[in-house]
Amino acid sequence: MFVNVILAVAVLLVTGVIAAIILALASHYFGIPVDETVHKVRACLPGANCGACGYTGCDGYAEALAAGGVKTNLCIPGGSEVSKSLAEMLGVDAEDVVKFKAYVHCNGTPEATEKSAEYDGLLTCNAMCLSCAGPDACKYGCLGCGDCASVCPTHAICVEDGVARVNPDRCISCGLCVKTCPKHIISLIPEDARVAVICSSHDNGAATRKKCSVGCIACRKCEKTCPYGAITVEDNLAKIDYEKCTGCGMCAEVCPVKCIAVRKSN
């Protein structure tokens, strides 16, 4: 009787010990050292895996952070708090997260633009866009029916003078308007951007002139003027690189059609 009990205990004990030894040896010989900082950094990140940082999810960003040389302010959902705690952990200077605001890249008010057709149909931008790309002569500009305004959850967009305008104080940079606009003329730009191009026309200068008095004519004056090389004309449209832009406003001064706007600083 007793022998049986002892035998059972012994068998289990021996098996357990063997299992423990095997696992201990395995983790000793096969184990791959895991970088502790990656784990700590990963725990700090919100885990939304949104990809806004430009890496493949939070794991990718954590690895890049642990490897060093990467800014801590790339996580937009985490905001400045995450940036701060990351910087504390990694021993680097904290930088605030750059907030984005929606911006409508068109200034084509009815006075400035020409019409090529009369439209008498459903008053949504989408419907307008489907019928010959809308009644405006410029096929790139704002249609002014306010599809963006109707999807905006915070009522930050209103159509003023035939063009949609974003109130940056209300914008939460959700990007719904960016997705909704059938002309794709809304984009998210950094909150502290001082200048922005208010035209989306890829027509050449002569063609744009005929249709709109405030459209970008691709004269490249801004490109030549900018001392930081932050502005380039691509495909007949000026484009600002906000990484390089210092907000000096010289481009806006030289622009002959005033299609570069100076935004008020916050």
Binding site: L12, T15, A19, A26
Partner: peptide, 22 residues
């Protein structure tokens, strides 16, 4: 010791899976 089957098998399988993972 046939009655030890369940507990012993759990032990062995758990160890095995961990080992395979490593």
């Amino acid at each position: 010791l046939g009655y030890l089957q369940t507990i012993l098998f759990i032990l062995i399988i758990a160890t095995l899976v961990q080992f395979i993972e490593i």
